[in-house]
Amino acid sequence: MTPLLSVENLKTYFRTYRGLVKAVDGVSFDINEKEIIGLVGESGCGKSVSMLSILQLISNPPGEIVSGRVMFDGQDLLQYKSKSDAMSAIRGAKIAMIFQEPMTSLNPVLTIGRQLTESLEIHLNMTPQTAQERAIELLRMIGIPDAHNRLDAYPHQFSGGMRQRVMIAIAISCNPKILIADEPTTAVDVTTQAQLLELMQDMVNRFDTSLVIVTHNLGVVARYAERIYVMYSGRIVESGLADDIFLNPRHPYTIGLLKCVPQLGETRQERKLVPIKGLPPNLINMPTNCAFLPRCDRARDICRQQLWPPLELVGGQHYVACFREIMEKP
């Protein structure tokens, strides 16, 4: 089965006063049809930048997509110019994105109805009449009561959770193939987060859309994602089925991440947290060894001598970029 979208060796660099930041440094991944994928990593690991690069939403300068391919529908999206019509036809219509901040993602001076119908009219060539009907239907689907009247409401009349629901409705409105949700629940409370995640799962099932959940919270993707990619300092360090990643993590970073968060109901008397030592890497002057090496407690000599370890298959669909795992592979 060919994947719906396939990213190959993507590199996005930022030129800053302090030096070259390799925000995304050789990332490859696939998104299959009707699949929910989790992309997990801490701030600055390049998870958002890699998603923005797919849609060419990186501002240049300072950012630049240096190399790579993004294959979608037999086309390399990176061949299109960022501001070209071909790219605009993909953004929103074929690949839609939801951002973290529900406050600023909606235009405050346009009504909810206008923002919903706009993309329908542009991408699907709907008449204002049908677009309006479709918008009401979408608002009902995302559980906004009294949808007919709420079309005339402005974003500030909605709460944060409601706005994020509207963002989901707008993103899904043109029936895209892929929905990318960039930290969709970071700015909302846990009970709202649960509502939003259920809603997103429901919507992608209904529209046969693939969903990419970008998050720093491993818990968020555990319930929904089928496959998970773990990123660290611009590279993917581990990928595999959700069960592989959570139950049998192989990369020391993934193992550390799972150990350093308190389990629900666990008190300090029962278990002291095991933090990952050191600091997250600064992306300027990165070592070309394994970027996790300074924080790794199971490093081998080869880790210091060799360049960055490649992602290698360790079983099933489970890939790990760690020399220790690669060497000790049976």
Partner: peptide
């Protein structure tokens, strides 16, 4: 390669 000993985390 960057010398790991001289490489600072901050």
């Amino acid at each position: 390669p960057v010398d790991i000993a001289k490489w600072s985390e901050t």
